[in-house]
Amino acid sequence: MKFADRIQKVDRRIIYVILLLAVVLPLVFRLGFKTYTTTPVEDLYRHIDAAAGRDDMSILMDFTHDPGVLPELYPMDLAILRHCFERNIKVFTISFLPQGAAIIQMALSEVKEDYPNIEANVDYCNFGFKPWSLKLPIMLGMGDDIAEAVETNSEGLKLENLPIMQNMKNYDNIQVVVEISGSSMGQFWVTYARAKFGVDVAVGLTAVMAADVYPFLQTGQFIGSLGGLKGAAEYEQLVDIFAMNGEEFSKKKARNMSWVEAQYKELPELAQLYKYSKARIGMDAQAIVHVLIIIFIILGNIGYFLDKREQKKNM
């Protein structure tokens, strides 16, 4: 068999095994690469951080995603919640998918473990699941009155009686809506809530959708975005080096790799937990696999061109 044929006819199971090794090895023997941050992520961090300590400003997180995309989006959920609890930012959570409601509960209970002072319905409020068919009524209704549009929280309590709602009326009290999803749900927020009431919207997306939002970032319709595992890793890092170390956000510092390295050395114990660095550890494996895929593409194409030349010669 010729070389060209031989590279083209590798059994797919061999490729699968190589891929598996490329994922497993970096996870077990950690490489500890530092990630670098990008503008859309920094913008979102800064925007959320601006609500720190205020009791008339909150952020609304919409968890409209299902378990299928958890590996990419769950680290984002954790990182944003941790940022809010650490910096005393009020959070509302909602989901228009029933699976999303369970994910909210998982994420909240996981982060709350480390913040015993954070109280439900005082520092955060989980609106829970609202049916898909009601997404527009609720989205539009919140422009007028949140308590009236949402009515109850996940435990069935009337919103208007909850302490957290005392200073919250409508979108004027929402710093930013963060839509975390694997679909184009963010567009709904822009098309309805933002166009009508002007509320700021940001998205946390699976990487599949990440490249599509750039036109909306330029217009400011999305004020920031987290794209896939990379976006999650960046947010984790920002939370660690700024919020956890009690530093004010500064873009210059975030981009200065030696400053970032130094910050990592001073991290409190809480920030070193595995669950809060899952995305960054995953990014190590991601780096190796990307290189592997690129090699595959190049090898495959070499085979393809050799083959083509061979055919031309024979003709």
Partner: peptide, 13 residues
Amino acid sequence: VMARISLLIGRIQ
């Protein structure tokens, strides 16, 4: 490509 690999990484984790 990145997205699909992230999902696999999540499962392997």
